[in-house]
Nucleic acid binder design. Structure first.
Lengths: 341, 341
DNA sequence: TTGTAAGCGTTATCAC
DNA sequence: GTGATAACGCTTACAA
């Protein structure tokens, strides 16, 4: 910067003003500075800037597994909303490992990100509360596991109900939920399934699944051996549903002729033509956008709190927002074969 | 830090030493400092550190589209290899938009990342050469589009040949390549297909596809109307292949009974049980690891160049490494029906 | 082993 | 408009 200033025949401060395109610089000087900068290949140092400015204009977003197609859209929502408010976003990958998540959060904190968006974190509520003490934090898509942090979730109770009512509406009565095992949202979805079935005056069966396709085959095998054979299956997520489709077709069971399949999440997998899964859609993009809105609120709160001498509590209690899911009907669901039961 | 030093009754420098766990600090002082730090909730400022240290220990990785399942594994490879060498990795998303890519690279440069890994960038070679002047850069999975930058690719010529030879070995003679349109690797794959077919003494037909599933349907419709109907299709990538499967089953064509389908990439989509695509596998994890090895080489070169006064050329010419693909046989390919032709 | 002091590259304040 | 000058929070010789 020094060098640029010299070459342009101005002071260092002037260069700074130009780099931040302040209005109070004469056009000629500005041009001179810009030219000098270009000639010298000058590029401002973000660290120095952040240090001097005492802020980073950056949000950190932690995804728990970069392989999961669920996250992409949430990230896109966060990025867009953040950009609209002049924030940068950097992504760290938790790799399904709590330890890596911890390190990532620590990195973000040392980095002085101004907010943290955690997508499906594996950390405990307590740990997170501790980490989040220092920066506005919001958890996206992690069921009800984080009472002490702001969260954004899709209403899984409503989602499973949508699925069940769709199936019941088609005429299904014997519906099985292939659950998510000990996965993060599995509990709520199980509960939602049971409630929805009861509400329809039905008993719902639940069998253990998981969150990946391979876990479907054994479960389905067992299920088909049981009697009566159900006419519809609600799978924990798209991947599991894909596994179900595969297991069923291996066994010669027609979907949706013999059995209807509905899944939850509606990632692009559900939309793959060959699968064409009827699925409960989570508004992922909106969840991302809402996450940003939430942390921006917190940032605003903090600021005003700082200003008023009164001494309001440092943080308002955690908010838990849930978004309404909707059902996307595709080809994997249909009325049960008449007399099939 | 000042405060921590005071509370621990030591100097600021000592605190710094402790934070970087230098060996030359007495255990008692170290303990005192650590306690003070914890009490005060002290957390070092990475920007200050990077500034003072004149290095960031960080690589930047730019993915062109966070939705594409192809990238996840590459990123994983980069992360692992980088971590092994004590580098952090931050991810920015190009969002399929050259302008965003430009901004992301500029951000990385201002951030003073020590190397750049670009996965499937959309930028032009010229632009990239310009940007990469200042930092070791490697392009992963972008065909032969970047002559002036180090690149890591899978040998698509070999890959398509693997696919063709597999099909020919099964007895197929009339094979159609549903190509990637103007997508980044489409040219090489087209070329590889033609060469491999010729090598087998066959003529390959090529029809226009794209890189997403929807683009398959019209192409397949046209294809089935043509005669003779081919017995096998090589699709540009997994998504397109999924579209092909869907289009074929809509038309009542059995896979692999009537037509075999082979795809390229072998992302998790190909492995979905219901699709079960025979696919040419790109060693994505290894590509990521190799990318790191490559930039580490460059970093090493730079350093030694700095040391020797002689004045060797600033950069050796770009290297272009290609990895061998392999074929993963699943259920979508089989011998042609006897007499089907 | 510990402390002192000089940067690191910006921004910000305030006279001019 | 412009230019000194003091932070910003840390690392790192060098001295003690």
């Amino acid at each position: 910067m020094e060098t640029v200033a010299e070459r342009a025949g101005v002071s260092r401060a002037l260069v700074s003003l130009v780099m931040n395109d302040s209005p109070k610089v004469s056009d000629e000087r500005r041009a001179a500075v810009l030219r000098a900068a270009k000639d010298l290949g000058y590029r401002r140092n973000l660290h120095a800037r952040n240090l001097a400015q005492q802020r980073t204009q950056t949000f950190g977003i932690l995804i728990n597994d970069i392989h999961n197609p669920f996250f992409a859209e949430v990230v896109a929502g966060v990025e867009k909303a953040a950009a609209d408010h002049d924030y940068d976003v950097i992504i760290l990958n938790g790799g399904r490992d709590p330890e890596r998540e911890r390190r990532a959060i620590e990195t973000y904190l040392q980095f002085r990100v101004e907010a943290l968006v955690l997508i499906g974190p594996r950390l405990s509520d307590a740990e997170l509360r501790h980490a989040a003490r220092d920066v506005p934090t919001v958890v996206v898509a992690a069921g009800g596991n984080f009472p002490s942090t702001d969260t954004i979730t899709t209403d899984d109770i409503a989602g499973t109900r949508l699925a069940v009512e769709h199936l019941v509406g088609l005429g299904h009565r014997d519906i099985v939920h292939l659950d998510g095992g000990n996965n993060i949202s599995a509990d709520v979805r199980r509960q939602g399934f049971v409630e929805a079935m009861n509400r329809c005056g039905l008993d719902g069966r639940i069998i253990t699944g998981g969150d990946s396709g391979e876990q479907a085959a054994p479960a389905i095998k067992e299920l088909l051996a049981s009697k009566p054979r159900p006419t519809a299956i609600l799978a924990f997520n798209d991947l599991l549903a894909a596994g179900v489709l595969s297991a069923l077709s291996d066994t010669g069971v027609d979907v949706p002729g013999d059995i209807s399949v509905v899944s939850i999440d509606n990632t692009f997998i559900a939309a793959l033509g060959h699968l064409s899964l009827t699925a409960v859609n989570q508004p992922r993009w909106e969840m991302g956008a809402m996450a940003v809105a939430t942390v921006l609120d917190r940032i605003g709160d903090q600021t005003s709190t700082d200003e008023e001498p009164g001494g309001t509590p440092p943080v308002a209690s955690a908010t838990h927002q849930s978004l309404a899911p909707n059902l996307v009907v595709r080809k994997s669901s249909a009325p049960p074969r008449t007399g099939a039961q």
